[in-house]
Design a protein around this nucleic acid. Structure first.
Lengths: 332, 332
DNA sequence: TTGAAAGCGCTAACAG
DNA sequence: CTGTTAGCGCTTTCAA
C-alpha cells in the first residue's frame, strides 16, 4: 500500500540505488534513465520516507529547539529567526518549551537526542551543571542563543549585555537623574543578575551616584509585575525619577503606573527599556529601548549550527551581535 | 560506539526482544530479568533510537504543526496550547510557518508526511482546493485549529465567530452608535470576510442601521494598519463614532489614532476588539474585547488529534468552544 | 516468559 | 553509469 523505493525501481526497471540517486539529485545518472525514473515516481506518487532515510544515513534533517516559552513574544521572535534559516537549509525544527525548569531542560535534551536531531539550538536563563553534563554527552552540535554560559565551552550568540546596560543607564544620567531604579525580570537569570545589573552599577559608579539597593528590584518579566514595582517604588521617601526596565512589558507596567498616579512620562518620569519588541511602539509614550535583536540572534544561531553540522570551519564560536538604542519618547 | 539494543541484550544475556519489552514497559517480563536488563541499560547508558523505532513501528510520536507565523502572539498562544497537550501525551511537535501562502502550505503538508508524523494540527486563513487535495491524500489524521473549512470534511475546533461578532457590534449599538466601522485584518481570510463581517452586518440590519461600505475596511492585522485605518476613516464627511476591530493590534492602532487626534476613548469614540491577547490589558484604556481562547483552541485541537491517532471514538469532530466578551474600558 | 528471525524503507560502499 | 549487498536500530509476529 505505501509505495516504496523498491516499487519505483521495479516499475522503472532499474535498481533501488539508481532511484535513490535520482531522488537525491546525484549527478551520476544518465539523463534518460533519470527521466524514466522521474516519470515512474510521478505516476506512482512516490514520496521518500524520511525516517528510513534518517536511519540509513544517520542524518534526520531536523534540529531541536529548546526555549522557555513560545507564548512569550520574546522567544517567539527568536524561534522565527531560527525557523527561517532552518528552512533555508532544508531542516525542520522540533520545538520544545522548558518553562525555565532545569530538570525539564535536561529531559528535553535527552528526548531530542533520542529523536536523533542533527543539532540543537537552546535558550536558557541559567545553564546548570546538570544541563552542562547532558550537553557534553551530546554527539551533535548545540548552540546557545541569547544565553550566557560563563565557561564559554559551547558556541553561542549574544549581544554585549553589559555595555548595552551601561549605555542605557547613561542616557538617564545625562538627563540629570540621580535616583534611577533598576527593575528587571527574573533575577535568577544570569543575564539580568550579572550583566544588566553590573552595567547599571557601573554607570552609576562612574557618575558618582550612590547605589541604593531599594532601587534595585527583581520581578517577573510581566506587565503586572512592572506595574506592581511602580507601586512599591513610588512609596519610597525618596522615590526614583527614572527607570531602567529589564524588558518592554515591565517598562509599560511602570509607565502605566506612573500615568495612573497622574505623572507624565517623560516629563516627570523617564524610562528606558531593554528589548524593543513590537510592543515598544504600541504604547504612549512609545518606548525608548535598547534593541535586543531576537530574530537575528535566532537566525545567526541557526546559521552557526548549520556550519557545525556541515563541519565547515568556524572562525568564532562565540558571536556577539551589535546592539543599539532606539530613541523614542519615554526618555527626553 | 553508539550503543544499541543489541549491546544491551548481549550484556544482559537476553534477546533483543526482551530488552525491547522492558524498554517499552511490556508486562510479559519476569521481574528478575527486568531488573537485570534495567541495570545493564543504566550501566551502558543506553538510549533508544526513536528513528529506528519509528521505522519499525510506523509511529514516530511526533506531530506536525502548520501555522502562519510563530512570531505573531496570536499563533504563539495557539502553539503553546498544542505543545502542552502534545507533551502530556508524549508527542513532540515539528513546527512550521506557512506565512499564509497556499503553495507553502501544501508543500509543508508534503514534507510533514515524508517525515512520517503521526498527525497534523493546522491553522490557515483560507483552505484552498490544492490544500484540500493534499490533505485528502494524508494517511494520518489532520485537525484544523481556528480554521474554517466550509465543507466540514475535516475535524476542527473553533468558536462561534458569527455570533461573537453580532454580540460585539450589539454592544456598540446599545450605546447609541449608528456609525460603526468594521476594521478587520486580512479580508482574504474566511473568518474575517465571511463570519465576522456577516455578524457585523446582521447586527446592523437588526437595528435598522444602514450598511455603509465606506465603514468597512480590510487591512493587515497590524498596529500600523489599524492606525492608518483611523486616518482614513476620520476624514469621512460623516465619520464613525465606534469601531469593531478584527484584532487587538488593530484596535490599539485605532485608539492611538483617536487619541492623537485629541479624542477620548471611550467618551468620544468607542472600540471593541476581537482577540483579547495579553495586549488588551496593556493599553490605556484597556480593551473591551471578544475573547478568542487561542490556547484552548490549540489544546483542544491537539487533544482531538490524539483521539484520532489512538483510534478512540469521537463524538463530534467539529467542536465549537464558547466565547465571551471581556468588558474593560474601551467601551462604556 | 523468552528467543529467533523477518522486516520497516532507505543509503552507501563496492564492484562492475 | 548502474546494480548488489549490507546494514541502520528497532518492533513484531511466531514458536517454543
Amino acid at each position: 500500500m505505501t509505495i516504496t523505493i523498491y516499487d519505483v525501481a521495479r516499475e522503472a526497471n532499474v535498481s533501488m540505488a539508481t532511484v535513490s540517486r535520482v531522488v537525491n539529485g546525484n549527478q551520476n545518472v544518465k539523463p534518460a534513465t533519470r527521466q524514466k525514473v522521474l516519470a515512474v515516481i510521478e505516476r506512482l506518487d512516490y514520496r521518500p520516507n524520511a525516517v528510513a532515510r534518517g536511519l540509513a544515513s544517520k542524518k534526520t534533517k531536523t534540529v531541536g529547539v529548546i526555549i522557555p516559552d513560545i507564548s512569550n513574544v520574546f522567544y517567539a521572535e527568536l524561534v522565527r529567526g531560527i525557523e527561517d534559516i532552518a528552512t533555508m537549509y532544508r531542516y525542520n525544527i522540533i520545538l520544545t518549551n522548558s518553562d525555565q525548569q532545569a530538570d525539564k531542560e535536561v529531559q528535553l535534551l535527552s528526548t531530542l537526542f533520542s529523536k536523533q536531531v542533527d543539532g540543537i539550538v537552546m535558550m536558557s536563563d541559567e545553564v546548570t551543571k546538570d544541563m552542562l553534563n547532558e550537553m557534553e554527552r551530546s554527539s551533535v552540535p548545540i548552540v546557545l542563543a541569547g544565553t550566557v554560559e560563563t565557561s564559554e565551552a559551547f558556541p553561542s550568540v549574544n549581544i554585549e549585555y553589559h555595555e548595552a546596560a551601561v549605555d542605557a543607564v547613561n542616557r538617564l544620567i545625562q538627563n540629570g537623574h540621580t535616583r534611577i531604579a533598576f527593575v528587571s525580570g527574573n533575577m535568577e537569570s544570569t543575564i539580568d543578575r550579572v550583566y544588566k545589573r553590573s552595567g547599571y552599577e557601573k554607570a552609576l559608579k562612574e557618575a558618582n551616584i550612590e547605589i541604593d539597593n531599594d532601587l534595585i528590584v527583581g520581578v517577573d518579566n510581566t506587565y503586572d509585575d512592572g506595574h506592581a514595582a511602580w507601586e512599591e517604588l513610588c512609596k519610597l521617601s525618596n522615590p526614583p525619577t527614572a527607570f531602567f526596565a529589564g524588558n518592554d512589558e515591565i517598562a509599560i507596567g511602570l509607565i502605566h503606573g506612573a500615568q495612573d498616579s497622574g505623572l507624565n512620562v517623560p516629563n516627570d518620569i523617564e524610562v528606558i527599556s531593554f528589548e524593543n519588541s513590537k510592543l515598544a511602539r504600541m504604547v504612549r509614550p512609545q518606548l525608548t529601548s535598547v534593541v535586543l535583536p531576537l530574530y537575528d540572534i535566532g537566525a545567526v544561531s541557526m546559521r552557526l549550527l548549520t556550519k557545525f553540522m556541515n563541519k565547515e570551519k568556524i572562525e568564532e564560536q562565540i558571536v556577539v551581535l551589535p546592539y543599539r538604542i532606539e530613541e523614542r519618547e519615554s526618555v527626553k
